[in-house]
């Protein structure tokens, strides 16, 4: 049909049209404030973080340990069997060097988000489509030296400052070679 149609609707504006008052517009903000219940599994996860422990959940039927913990196993749809403390060390599964904040401000020093497979959680492998990782940031590292497969360890906030939040872990830093 595009070969039979000469005119397509849609009127393009540029920022100047707004500044010059050529178009009418109105600003508004959605007033959407929440207190999300943490629930059972995530509540336990956050309480663990406050104590300096990363908790996973284990399904005995699927022999999988997942993180963050949850009450139901997605694979067999049975209740999870138990919480399991994981190590606060892991392996960088993937990472990025990000020069833009969430609200699109430019930054000079990149943030380094990463997916980190935690020691003690199930690992991705030929036999498993599953990988026990969480999203967090890397720190105390030269961005140019970050690589997939790098061994890392959590850097925690001082115990008194922890509030039961994912940010109780400040970031993950490279493990020294001898410990990696």
């Amino acid at each position: 049909m595009t070969s039979r149609i000469n005119h397509f609707p849609g009127t393009s504006l540029n920022e100047q049209d707004f500044a010059d008052g050529k178009v009418l517009f109105v600003h508004d903000a959605l007033k959407a404030e929440y207190a999300w219940d943490t629930g059972i599994a995530i509540g336990t996860y956050l309480a663990g973080l406050k104590r300096g422990v990363i908790l996973g959940a284990h399904c005995r039927h699927c022999r999988k340990t997942v993180v963050p913990p949850r009450t139901v196993c997605e694979w067999c749809f049975r209740p999870m069997s138990e919480y399991i403390p994981l190590q606060d060390t892991g392996t960088v599964n993937t990472f990025s060097l990000c020069y833009v904040t969430w609200d699109v401000r430019r930054i000079k020093e990149p943030e380094i988000p990463a997916v980190i497979t935690l020691d003690g959680a199930s690992q991705l492998g030929p036999a498993s489509l599953f990988m026990g990782g969480i999203m967090h940031k890397l720190g105390e590292v030269n961005p140019e030296q970050v690589h997939i497969g790098m061994r890392v360890k959590a850097v925690w906030k001082p115990e008194k400052e922890r509030e039961g939040a994912i940010t109780d872990i400040l970031y993950f830093k490279p493990l020294p070679k001898e410990e990696a």
Partner: peptide, 19 residues
Amino acid sequence: TTERPLKPNLLWIFALEMN
């Protein structure tokens, strides 16, 4: 609760997957 406090950016998820 578990991700947004890190102030993630949509680009993260794509950059992580692309890498």
